[in-house]
Simulated scan of single mutants.
Amino acid sequence: MERSMEHSRGTIDAAQRFLSQSRSGLHAVAACVDRGTKIMADANLAQDTRANIEAQIIELRNEMGRLSKSLQARASDVAEDAEDAFETVKSRAAGAAKTVRRQAHVVSEAIGDNPGTAAAVLSSAGVMGLLVGFAAGYILASGSRR
């Protein structure tokens, strides 16, 4: 009986050691599962972050495309406005040049038809300019003497 008790105690001790080892093994498995869960959570977080960044990059590219199209449209409008302004100035300058040519032709014909009158008018204008110059010089000189 003593022997069967010792045998039973040995079996009980072996069972307890087995349970103890099993518990530590279960703790190790639980720790691994916890680490694996954490790693998977970190991986999911990394995937979510990457997906968010990729979505933002796509959104920025789309915005850049819209801005580029808007700038192209505005540049085209400015170019058209500049071209219209140039054409307006060009046509007005051509009209002014035509008018000046016509008036110069009329004056040259008048001088050719009446050379004496033209000489008298031009000499009178020259004498008047000379008198105005002398008067202005006298007024300026007398003002500086005071």
Rank of each mutant, 00 (worst) to 15 (best):
S24L: 04
G126S: 15
I53P: 00
K69L: 14
S91V: 11
R23M: 06
A43Y: 01
N114Y: 05
E6G: 07
G126M: 09
A75M: 07
A110W: 12
G65E: 13
L131A: 10
A41R: 15
I39G: 03
A135N: 08
L60W: 05
A14W: 02
S124W: 05
A93G: 04
L45N: 15
D113W: 06
S68K: 12
A30H: 06
P115T: 04
N62H: 05
V121F: 05
I139G: 00
L67I: 08
D34I: 07
R146Q: 12
S24D: 13
Y138N: 05
K90Q: 07
K38D: 14
A104S: 09
D77G: 02
I57E: 01
G133S: 13
M64F: 01
V33G: 02
I12E: 01
R61Q: 06
S8L: 07
K69E: 15
V106H: 00
S68A: 13
E2P: 02
A135T: 10
D81Q: 07
K38W: 06
E80A: 07
V33E: 03
R61L: 06
A31E: 14
L140M: 03
V121E: 09
A135Y: 04
K98P: 00
D48E: 01
R146G: 07
R23H: 08
A93F: 02
I57P: 00
N62M: 04
G129V: 03
A119D: 11
G126Q: 14
G137D: 12
A135D: 09
N52L: 11
G95N: 04
H27L: 06
G126V: 13
A55D: 10
M64A: 06
K69D: 15
E63W: 06
R35D: 10
M128E: 13
D42S: 09
D81C: 03
R102K: 08
R23D: 14
L71Y: 04
S76A: 15
Y138W: 01
D42A: 09
S124F: 04
R23E: 15
R146I: 07
K90I: 01
G112W: 01
G126F: 09
D48H: 00
S22H: 10
A15G: 11
E6R: 08
